[in-house]
Write a protein that binds this DNA or RNA. Structure first.
Length: 334
DNA sequence: TATAAGGATCCAT
DNA sequence: ATGGATCCTTATA
């Protein structure tokens, strides 16, 4: 059985419990960007976990977005609840200590100090990584309209999550094998149980679920002792367009995709953000995502584009002055 | 062949 | 009433 991986050496920021921790397999999942050709950042963390020399923790775009403010809250709240190991309130990223700034004429750092500096830098790197993972789960929740905690999923939610994970890791469709399961069932399954239902994808699915479970566990832990939430930084986006009760509109959905270029830049991107001009690079992909979001498996670009064209009259979206294929423009750019 | 434009109809909220 | 989904015809590159 995979042991929980400490994403930190002694004095860990993030030593998660056995049942919900980032296991070796879930970390392995985070490393798969090589095969997925999605490398944006590769963070060498081998010294973090002396039990796993040479461990790379990589962030492919789905798991690496813009900032890590979430983490600051995570660490703050764990401090305040007194339950977990602590991380000093993070400084601005720009002010993070640089690891190799040797000498500068002064006497060399003592090993202890050096270790401390290294430790802190690594903590911040880890914080970034975990923060991005959490943010990306948040994004997926918005897009799929499901809660972040797998334990709360019904069978339909499980199927959505499976579809999503398949799409994310280019897996074959395995939804059928998990048809009758709700979130609780899924969470209680061992990797062996996964193997029985889906021999090819068990490892990835189990590991990915592990990440979600960890995230839910962390969220639970943070929200328990602390309710502070800075405006505009909702943890799980209860106030977001997709969760505010009203069903999401297509134009909002497109905007959400456009705001996550790390994750969706390959299928939709700004040509001119100021003017609100964007291009759908992969029409089938965007349509699939929209169908996923709206529970419309038969969605395709033909229908999606028809809906976009309805916006012409309403003054929400139009064709840019020089009309190009798959290029549209928000009439009121943000 | 894929995309674009827009009419018609149905459905859910 | 409104926003979409679906299906359709016609035009264009």
């Amino acid at each position: 059985m995979a042991s929980p991986v400490r994403i930190q050496s002694d004095g860990a920021v993030l030593q998660l419990p056995h049942s919900t921790g980032f296991t070796e397999s879930s970390l392995a999942l985070l490393k798969q960007e090589d095969s997925l050709e999605m490398v944006d950042h590769k963070l060498r963390l081998d010294s973090l976990d002396r039990g796993h020399p040479g461990l790379y923790l990589s962030c492919f775009d789905m798991l690496f977005t813009e900032d890590a403010a979430w983490l600051v809250r995570v660490s703050d709240s764990s401090t305040s609840t007194g339950i977990g190991p602590r991380l000093e309130p993070c400084q601005e990223p720009e002010q993070c200590p640089v690891i190799d700034s040797p000498g500068l004429g002064a006497s060399p750092l003592s090993p202890t100090l050096e270790e401390q500096v290294e430790e802190r830098s690594l903590e911040q790197v880890q914080s970034l990584v975990v923060g991005e993972v959490l943010k990306d789960i948040e994004t997926a929740c918005k897009l799929l309209n499901i809660t972040p905690d797998p334990m709360e999923w019904n069978c339909g939610n499980v199927q959505k999550w499976l579809l999503w994970t398949e799409h994310l890791y280019r897996l074959p469709q395995v939804g059928k094998a998990f048809q009758d399961l709700d979130g609780k069932d899924l969470c209680s399954m061992s990797e062996e149980d996964f193997r029985q239902r889906s021999p090819q994808c068990s490892e990835t699915l189990h590991a990915h679920l592990d990440i979600w479970k960890s995230a839910a566990w962390m969220k639970e832990r943070c929200s328990g002792g602390e309710t502070r939430m800075r405006e505009g930084e909702e943890l799980w986006s209860e106030a977001d367009s997709s969760c505010s009760g009203q069903p999401i509109h297509l134009w909002q959905f497109l905007r959400e995709l456009l705001l996550k270029p790390h994750s969706y830049g390959r299928c939709i991107r700004w040509l001119n953000k100021e003017k609100g001009i964007f291009k759908i690079e992969d029409s089938a992909h965007v349509a699939r995502l929209w169908g996923l979001r709206k529970n419309r498996p038969a969605m395709n670009y033909d229908k999606l584009s028809r809906s976009i064209r309805q916006y012409y009259k309403k003054g929400i979206i139009r064709k840019p002055d020089v009309s190009q294929r798959l290029v549209y423009q928000f009439v009121h750019p943000v």
